[in-house]
Design a protein around this nucleic acid. Structure first.
Length: 846
DNA sequence: ATAGGGTTAG
C-alpha cells in the first residue's frame, strides 16, 4: 500500500512537470506515463474506428481464410494453414482486435487469439486484444476460458490502461467471476501493470455486487478507495447499495440511498433496486412508496421490474398493491402477459375477492387473452356458488382432454371443500364415481357438462381431507373403500391423514389395519405414519406397544418424535410409574434411539415425585455419560427435588454447577431458591436474591413476588409483604389471582383482615374469583378479631358465590364452627336460619 | 402434511 501511494505521488509530480519520461515499473515493461494516467474508459472495439485501409483489407483476408476453410480446421496443432502462416508477419494488435470481433464463433476467436500470440517475435497482445477476447468469452459465457484468460493477463506483462482494466473486470463480473476480478485487480497493481483509478474501483464494486455481494470485501474496497483519495460517485454507491440490499442490511442500504438522494444521483436503476429489495423483505408499502416517488420524478420502471414487483406483492399477500402496480404497468404502455393475470387472480382468489377476480377475467377477454385452464381452476377452487361455477365452466373450451376435465372437476371439489360444503363435495364425487354405470343426465344435473369423468386419486384426496377436517372420519373411511372398489390406488397422503385421524380418535386397531394394508399394497409408510401410531400408543401409556412400534420404525430408519416419547414418560410419571418410564428410556437406547434431554428431565421429575431423589440424582449424573448435558430446566427439576428432600447444601451446590458449566440460572432457578429460603425461615436471604436478580438481567416475575409475599407474611412481616407488593406493581408486573390470594391469605394470618378485605375487593373489581379458602381465612380472621358483623358479611358472600368448602376440605370444619357461632348470636342467628331455609347451607350443619 | 418437549408461587 505504501509503495502504491508513493508511486501515485510520483506520477502526479511528473505529470505536473509535463515530462514525457518513461518510467520503469517492471523489468520487462516500459509504460508511457500518458498511458498509465489515462483516466478514460476505453472499450475494445476499435474495429469500428479503424482508419487504415491496409488493416481493413488484411482483416478481411484473415476472416475469409478462417471462415472459408472447409477442408481442415485452421489451427490443427502442427499444420497451420499455409495461407495463415504467410499472413502472419502482417499481424498487429489492431488487426487482431478487428478480426476477433468479426469472427462468428468464440471457439474460432479463441483459437485465433492463441495462435496470434505464438507468432513471436512479431506480435504481442495488448490490453485491447485481451479485452476483445474477454468480451467475446464473457458474452458467450465461456467461464473457464475467461478465467484462464484473466489469469494469463498479469503474467503476460501487458500493461493496461485503467479504462481497459475496468472493462476486463466488468467482463469477469458479468459471469460471476468475482474472486478472479479481485485477484486480477490486485495482481495488476502489484506488478505495476496498471494504476487503478476510481473507474476501476467502480467496476470492481459492480462485479462484487453481482455475486450476491460480500459485504466485508465491498467495504474493504471502499476503504481502499477512500484511502487513495478517490471520490465516490453514483457508480460507486449503486453497487454498494446493492450489496447491502442483497445482504439484507436494511439500515446500511437506506443510508447509502439517502446519500445518493442528497446528491441527486438516484436514477431508475437505484429506485428499482431498492423497491425490489423492499418487496423481497416483505415491506410492500415502502416498495410502493418508492415507485410513486419515482413516478413523481417522471421515471418509469422497466417491464421486468414491474413483473417482479407484482409477483412479489402478491406473494406477500398485498394483492391490492399488486393491482395498483398492474395498473401503472398498463398505463406505462406494457401489455401484461397471461402469467401476470394468473398470479393476480390467484392472489384475489386466496383473499376471496372473487368479484375483482371475475372482472380481471372479463378484462382479459376484452384484450383478446383467453383465460387458460390454470386460471379457471384457480377460480373454481375458490367458488362454491352454483351459478358461478356454471358460468366458469362455460369459459372452458369444449375440446379439453380427459385429464384436464378431471383437473377442472377437482377444482370444483376444492371450491366446495374450501367453503365447508362437504355434502356437495361428497355428492359430486359420488356422481363421478358412478359415472361409468350412471347416465349422462345424472351429470347434467350437476353441471350441464356433457363429459363424464371418473375421479382420480387427487379427487378422493381433496374430499377425504375435507371430511377429516370436518370431523367426518367414518364417511372419509367409506371413500377409501369406494376407491378400492373402482380400482383407484390411495396415495400416501390419504393413508397418512386417515391413520392420523384414527389415532387422534384413539382408534388404534383400525390404524394398524390401514398400516398393514398400505404395506401390502407397497406404499411405504413415512415417519409421519409411524409417529401418528407411536403417539397414540404413548398417549395410552402402552409401553410394550410403543416399544414394538419403535422396533418397526428402527427398521425403516424413522426417528420417533421427541414430544411423543416425552408424553409417554410424563404420563407414566404422573401416575407414579417413574421406574417404568426409566426402563422405557433405557429400552429406547437399546433400540438405538437416544432419548432427548427433555424426556430424561421428565423422568427425573417423575423419580422426584415418588421421592426417589437419589435415583433422580443418579440419572441426572448419568445424563452426560449418555451423550447429553443437562440444561437449566433439568437443573431446576433437580434443585427442586433436593430442596423438597431438605438437601439444601446439595441444591445450592447445583446452582454453582450451573454457572461452572457455562449455563446461567433462569428466573425459575431463582424462584425455587427464594421459595426454599422462605419456607426455611431465611426470608432475608430470599430478599437479597430478589435484589440480585435484576442486576443479572433476570427480571423477577409474578411468581417471584408471590413467593416473597407469602414468605414475608409467614414471617409475620405484613408491612414488608405490602412493600414487595407495591414494588411488583411499580415494576409493571401485574398480580394474578394466585398473587392476590397469597396476599389476602397472608394478611389474614397476620391478623389484618380489614386490609385483606380491601384486596379482595380489588381482586373482585378485576373480575378474579377467589377460592373458598380465602373466604374462610377472612372469616376466621374477623372472628378472632371479634368482628362478628364483618365475619358474617364474608360468610354470606361465600355462601352466595357458591364457595362453601366441600365436606372433605379441611376448611369445612371452620365454616361449620362459624355457623354455630352465628346461630348463637342474636345479631346473626335469624339470617342463618333464612340461609338454611333457602337451602344455601347444608341442613345438617345445624 | 410434519419440531417444539421437561421446571417455579396461594
Amino acid at each position: 500500500m505504501m509503495a502504491l501511494s508513493t508511486l501515485k505521488l510520483k506520477l502526479k509530480l511528473k505529470l505536473k512537470l509535463k515530462l514525457t519520461l518513461t518510467l520503469t515499473l517492471h523489468t520487462h515493461t516500459k509504460l508511457k506515463i500518458s498511458a498509465l494516467c489515462s483516466f478514460f474508459s476505453t472499450t475494445t472495439t476499435h474495429s469500428n474506428t479503424l482508419s487504415h485501409p491496409h488493416t481493413l483489407t488484411a482483416a478481411d483476408a484473415f476472416i475469409s481464410i478462417l471462415t472459408n476453410n472447409q477442408q481442415q480446421p485452421p489451427f490443427s496443432p502442427n499444420s497451420p494453414s499455409p495461407h495463415l502462416t504467410r499472413l502472419s508477419p502482417t499481424l498487429s494488435p489492431h488487426l487482431v482486435e478487428s478480426v476477433l470481433t468479426r469472427l462468428p464463433s468464440w471457439k474460432l476467436a479463441l483459437s485465433f487469439f492463441h495462435w496470434a500470440s505464438t507468432q513471436h517475435p512479431y506480435y504481442y497482445h495488448t490490453c485491447y486484444t485481451f479485452n476483445a477476447m474477454a468480451s467475446i468469452l464473457s458474452r458467450s459465457r465461456q467461464i473457464s476460458h475467461l478465467k484462464a484468460l484473466a489469469f494469463d493477463v498479469p503474467s503476460s506483462g501487458c500493461s493496461f490502461t485503467p479504462g481497459a482494466l475496468g472493462f476486463l473486470i466488468r467482463c469477469l463480473g458479468a459471469v460471476g467471476l468475482v474472486e478472479e476480478a479481485n485477484h486480477l485487480f490486485d495482481e495488476m497493481r502489484v506488478k505495476g501493470l496498471c494504476v487503478p483509478n476510481d473507474y476501476c474501483y467502480n467496476c470492481l464494486l459492480e462485479a462484487i455486487s453481482k455475486d450476491g455481494g460480500d459485504v466485508g470485501l465491498m467495504e474493504m474496497r471502499l476503504k481502499e478507495m477512500r484511502g487513495l483519495g478517490f471520490e465516490f460517485d453514483r457508480f460507486t454507491l449503486t453497487p454498494v447499495m446493492q450489496v447491502y440490499c442483497n445482504a439484507r442490511k436494511f439500515d446500511e442500504a437506506l443510508r447509502v440511498y439517502n446519500t445518493m438522494q442528497a446528491k441527486g444521483w438516484v436514477d431508475e436503476r437505484v429506485y428499482s433496486l431498492l423497491a425490489l429489495s423492499f418487496s423481497k423483505w416483505g415491506k410492500v408499502d415502502k416498495a410502493f412508496e418508492l415507485v410513486e416517488r419515482m413516478e413523481g420524478q417522471g421515471m418509469i420502471l422497466n417491464e421486468r421490474t414491474f413483473c417482479v414487483l407484482i409477483h412479489g406483492f402478491v406473494k406477500e399477500g398485498h394483492v391490492d398493491k399488486a393491482l395498483e402496480m398492474f395498473d401503472k404497468m398498463r398505463k406505462a404502455g406494457f401489455v401484461p402477459g397471461i402469467s401476470l393475470y394468473d398470479v393476480l387472480i390467484g392472489g384475489l382468489c386466496r383473499n376471496k375477492e372473487t368479484d375483482k377476480a371475475l372482472s380481471l377475467i372479463s378484462e382479459m377477454k376484452e384484450l383478446g387473452v383467453q383465460p387458460d385452464v390454470g386460471i379457471l381452476t384457480k377460480l373454481l377452487s375458490s367458488f362454491s356458488d352454483r351459478s358461478m361455477i356454471m358460468k366458469l365452466l362455460d369459459e372452458i373450451p369444449k375440446e379439453q382432454d380427459y385429464e384436464t376435465i378431471v383437473l377442472i372437476y377437482n377444482a370444483v371439489l376444492n371450491g366446495y371443500v374450501g367453503d365447508g360444503l362437504m355434502d356437495e363435495a361428497y355428492n359430486l364425487l359420488q356422481v363421478m364415481i358412478n359415472c361409468e354405470s350412471g347416465t349422462n343426465e345424472q351429470i347434467d344435473n350437476v353441471f350441464g357438462l356433457k363429459r363424464l369423468v371418473t375421479p382420480n386419486t387427487t379427487s378422493f384426496n381433496i374430499v377425504i381431507d375435507g371430511l377429516l377436517k370436518n370431523g367426518q372420519l367414518d364417511l372419509a373411511l367409506t371413500l377409501l373403500h369406494d376407491m378400492q372398489r373402482i380400482h383407484r390406488k390411495p396415495n400416501i397422503s390419504i393413508y397418512n391423514n386417515l391413520i392420523n385421524d384414527l389415532c387422534n380418535s384413539n382408534r388404534l386397531e383400525e390404524s394398524f389395519k390401514l398400516l398393514r394394508e398400505m404395506e401390502n399394497s407397497r406404499i411405504e409408510p413415512t415417519h409421519f405414519t409411524h409417529n401418528s401410531i407411536y403417539g397414540c400408543l404413548c398417549k395410552r401409556k402402552d409401553v410394550l406397544g410403543a416399544m414394538d412400534m419403535l422396533k418397526e420404525m428402527r427398521s425403516c430408519g424413522h426417528e420417533p418424535w421427541i414430544k411423543h416419547s416425552t408424553l409417554l414418560v410424563k404420563e407414566l410419571c404422573d401416575h407414579g410409574r417413574a421406574v417404568e418410564a426409566c426402563n422405557f428410556l433405557n429400552n429406547m437406547v437399546q433400540e438405538g434411539f437416544l432419548p432427548h434431554v427433555v424426556s430424561y428431565s421428565a423422568a427425573i421429575g417423575g423419580l422426584i415425585k415418588i421421592q426417589e431423589v437419589d435415583q433422580a440424582l443418579n440419572l441426572f449424573r448419568d445424563l452426560c455419560s449418555r451423550g447429553h448435558c443437562p440444561d437449566v430446566v433439568t437443573f431446576n427439576i433437580m434443585i427442586r427435588g433436593l430442596c423438597k428432600g431438605d438437601r439444601f447444601t446439595e441444591a445450592e451446590n447445583l446452582l454453582d454447577e450451573i454457572v461452572m458449566r457455562g449455563l446461567s440460572p433462569s428466573v425459575v432457578t431463582y424462584n425455587l431458591l427464594i421459595d426454599n429460603w422462605c419456607k426455611n425461615g431465611s426470608v432475608d436471604n430470599a430478599m437479597a436474591l430478589l435484589s440480585k436478580m435484576s442486576g443479572e438481567d433476570r427480571e423477577p416475575n409474578v411468581i417471584t413476588y408471590t413467593t416473597l409475599v407469602d414468605g414475608l407474611c409467614r414471617a409475620e412481616r405484613p408491612n414488608d409483604a405490602l412493600s414487595v407488593w407495591n414494588e411488583m406493581q411499580s415494576k409493571g408486573c401485574t398480580p394474578n389471582r394466585i398473587a392476590f390470594m397469597a396476599l389476602i391469605h397472608g394478611l389474614c394470618k397476620c391478623s389484618r383482615p380489614t386490609a385483606a378485605l380491601r384486596y379482595l375487593r380489588e381482586m373482585e373489581q378485576k373480575e378474579m374469583k377467589a377460592d373458598s379458602f380465602i373466604y374462610v381465612a377472612l372469616l376466621s380472621a374477623f372472628l378472632s378479631d371479634l368482628d362478628l358483623t364483618s365475619a358474617f358479611e364474608i360468610f354470606k358472600e361465600m355462601v352466595d358465590s357458591g364457595s362453601f368448602p366441600e365436606s372433605h376440605d379441611k376448611n369445612y370444619s371452620i365454616a361449620i364452627d362459624a355457623i354455630l357461632k352465628f346461630s348463637k348470636d342474636d345479631r346473626t342467628s335469624s339470617a342463618i336460619r333464612v340461609l338454611t331455609e333457602e337451602g344455601k347451607i347444608p341442613r345438617h350443619c345445624l
